[in-house]
Structures are given as structure tokens and as C-alpha cells.
């Protein structure tokens, strides 16, 4: 339980993650525990290879722990089958990538509406929601533009719109400003603050950038798979 008595949005308990390379075992996370309260904005920092992205992937439900428990939004994600996990991700987690990873053949609006294809919404409803998400990130007027017609900062804002369009409880961001100039990075961080403050999104962000980390409420440092505050 978190300090306010409510169950934390993210609860990682004694998680181990071991990768196997041929006969060699590489221990990435070693009994790590972490709690992120609902509505928190957490930054995970640490050197390369410290396990930040691995932890983020476990929280996002795109990887499974070797041992331990990862409970997100009340669901132990390690207990879900592949199909259930995919369905769970579509409803509970919005993922923001370092390199935006928009689909180049789709317009901004179509990219944003992509996760809504998994819902029972009509085409009109999907379009309306995508436009609303684009409005939130300030890009409604660029809805018909393709990714190649957008700047890096705009692409990342479209990616954020895609992450929030299904109204997930948790946003996970892997180096969201890592590929941006300082001005664009500042805009993205401001947008994430807004999503956290005004829309109540719980955000877990991996970053190398201390300035970005300062925008989070809580900072965690990872060193060789172990947390150090």
C-alpha cells in the first residue's frame, strides 16, 4: 500500500530478470522492488545497461519477469497469457518511444487512431477521439499530415496523442526527449506534465537527461539492476 492507503498504480516486488545469451546468463534486474502511486510522475535514471528500459518494459507488459511480481493497475501482468496481455496493454498502458515509431504510411490522425481499431468504436467515433487527442497535444491542424511532413517534436507529440487516445491509466516513456533538440524536448516535457497534472495520468519515464528527470515528482536511480534513491 502507498502512503495514502490506496493500492499503488504500479507495484514491482522482488523482480528478477535474467537474459540468456548462449550458455551465459546476464542478470539485468536483481530482486528489484518499486511502488508508483496513482497520479505520480516518476523518472528512472541510470547508466546504460543498468536495467531502466527492462524495468519499463516489465511495467508496460511487453516483457515478463524471470521471478517476482509486477502489478499494474491492479493486474499481475506476469500471470496473463499472450493474448490477454496484449488486450490488457491496449486498455491500460500508453507507450511513448524515443524514436516516435509512427507508421509512415498513415497520417497523424490515422496513427493516433491506430489503438482504437482494437475497440468496438465506430469509424466516426475513432476519428473524433483521435482529433481530440491531437487537440490535447496541440496538433489538430496537422491531422492529415504524414510523419515525414512533421518535425521531430511534432512526431513525438503525435506519438503521445497515440499513447493517450485510448485513455490508459499509465503512460510509460522510454527516453521521450532523447532524439529531440532542447526546445522540442522542453515542449514534450511540458506536455507530459500537463497530462500528469490535468489528466491524472501516472507516468513512468526513463531518461538520461537530468533536466528531464527534474520535471518528475520522483526520481529513481538504477545501478546494475538495483534501485538506489
Amino acid at each position: 500500500m502507498s502512503g495514502n492507503g490506496k493500492a499503488p498504480m504500479v507495484a514491482v516486488e522482488g523482480v528478477k530478470k535474467v537474459y540468456r545469451r548462449d550458455a551465459e546468463e546476464v542478470k539485468v534486474l536483481d530482486g528489484l522492488s518499486l511502488e508508483v502511486p496513482e497520479g505520480d510522475f516518476v523518472a528512472l535514471m541510470g547508466p546504460s545497461g543498468s536495467g531502466k528500459t527492462t524495468l519499463l518494459n516489465l511495467i508496460a507488459g511487453i516483457d515478463r519477469p524471470t521471478a517476482g511480481k509486477v502489478v499494474v493497475a491492479g493486474t499481475d501482468v506476469a500471470q496473463l497469457g499472450e493474448s490477454e496481455l496484449a488486450r490488457w496493454r491496449s486498455r491500460n498502458v500508453g507507450f511513448i518511444f524515443q524514436f516516435y515509431n509512427l507508421i509512415p504510411v498513415l497520417t497523424a490522425e490515422e496513427n493516433v487512431a491506430l489503438p482504437l481499431l482494437l475497440t468496438s468504436l465506430s469509424k466516426k467515433e475513432r476519428r473524433e477521439r483521435a482529433l481530440t487527442a491531437l487537440k490535447v497535444v496541440g496538433l489538430a491542424e496537422r491531422s492529415q499530415h504524414y510523419p515525414r511532413q512533421l518535425s521531430g517534436g511534432q512526431e513525438q507529440r503525435v506519438a503521445i496523442a497515440r499513447a493517450i487516445v485510448a485513455d490508459p491509466k499509465v503512460l510509460v516513456a522510454d527516453e521521450p526527449t532523447g532524439d529531440l533538440d532542447s526546445k522540442s524536448a522542453e515542449e514534450i516535457l511540458a506536455l507530459m506534465e500537463t497530462l500528469n497534472r490535468d489528466f491524472g495520468k501516472t507516468i513512468v519515464m526513463v531518461t538520461h537527461d537530468p533536466r528531464a528527470a527534474q520535471r518528475a515528482h520522483t526520481q529513481h536511480h538504477l545501478e546494475k539492476g538495483v534501485l538506489s534513491l
Binding site: 496493454r89 515509431n101 482494437l118
Partner: peptide, 14 residues
Amino acid sequence: TEIAVLKTLGFGSE
């Protein structure tokens, strides 16, 4: 990459 992104967004492998 796109396939990985689709799966991340919740598109099942099937």
C-alpha cells in the same frame, strides 16, 4: 519496428 509497435499498442500476435 512497426510490427513491434503494433504489438506494443495491444495488437495480438494472431
